[in-house]
Design a protein around this nucleic acid. Structure first.
Length: 240
DNA sequence: AACTTACGCAACCGCGAAAAG
DNA sequence: TCTTTTCGCGGTTGCGTAAGT
């Protein structure tokens, strides 16, 4: 299936843009096989591809790289995405590290398609139905977020995130009752992963909360239908 | 059958961080 | 130390296809 139009153009530097051809894929794969990935600018210059380094990297990472999974996101993967998104927000590359064979782009697309839309639909409905009460909830939510931000402990390096982006302090927190490794082990256990997404009641609660979260509210992790701000008092539950 | 809408996803863009000079 | 280049990330776009009317 031809995508991204059929038109291949060139940018200001003369690099080709648009869909990759099978010949280009073959060239890139062969070049990376011989020389390894990385050094994308030299890949662009030396491989014979008239593509920018950026374009080469993207094509390799998202499409040609060995070990990539094809096909639908499984329920287990979906649950991991949701829960890691609640942990880290839109840090797709970090989330992708816990889903072998899936790319950040794929996860990002999946999230946007499935949850952003449903989130906004729910939000619209809720807005129509409960405009007043929602406003009140938001005010209460802001107070809790302030509490979360005041109590949360930032721990970038624990999960090997070397990037340390500017907004890190708002998303990467420490669970008060277990460390991150414990948490992630728990996440990837089938019994836990299946539990929320398989239960329509819990799912509704969880989605209702997660989909309406903004970046700051991602500081919260939902556990057993309650939520607590990461780093907050483990003996206190916070209903979002 | 024709048309419209929604979905899925490859690819591009802009920005910030890291590395190199 | 400063500047330039490269890399990687998240956000966004736009096209093909499937589903609905």
């Amino acid at each position: 299936m031809m995508r991204w139009g059929s038109i291949v153009t060139t940018d200001q530097q003369g690099w080709r843009k648009g869909p990759w051809t099978p010949e280009e894929d073959k060239l890139l794969s062969e070049y990376v096989r011989l020389h390894g990935d990385g050094r994308w600018s030299s890949v662009a210059r030396s491989s014979g591809l008239n593509r920018s380094g950026k374009s080469c990297r993207l094509r390799w990472v998202n499409y040609l790289r060995p070990g990539l999974k094809r096909g639908q996101i499984t329920p287990q993967e979906e649950a991991i995405i949701i829960e890691l998104h609640a942990l880290w927000g839109n840090r797709w590359s970090t989330i992708a590290r816990y889903l072998p064979g899936r790319t950040d782009n794929e996860i990002k697309n999946y999230w946007r398609t499935h949850y952003k839309k449903r989130s906004s639909q729910k939000q619209e409905k809720r807005k129509a139905d409960h405009d007043h009460s929602k406003q009140k909830q938001q005010e209460e939510g802001r107070e809790r977020i302030e509490l979360a931000n005041n109590t949360a402990a930032v721990d970038h390096d624990h999960l090997g995130d070397q990037q340390g982006r500017q907004d890190d302090q708002t998303v990467m927190m420490t669970c008060p009752t277990m460390d991150q490794d414990q948490w992630l082990r728990l996440l990837t256990q089938d019994s836990v992963v299946g539990s929320w997404s398989d239960n329509p009641v819990v799912e509704e609660e969880l989605w209702g909360d997660l989909w309406n979260m903004d970046d700051h509210a991602s500081n919260y992790i939902n556990c057993n239908r309650t939520a607590f701000p990461m780093g907050g008092d483990p003996n206190t539950t916070y209903n979002i």
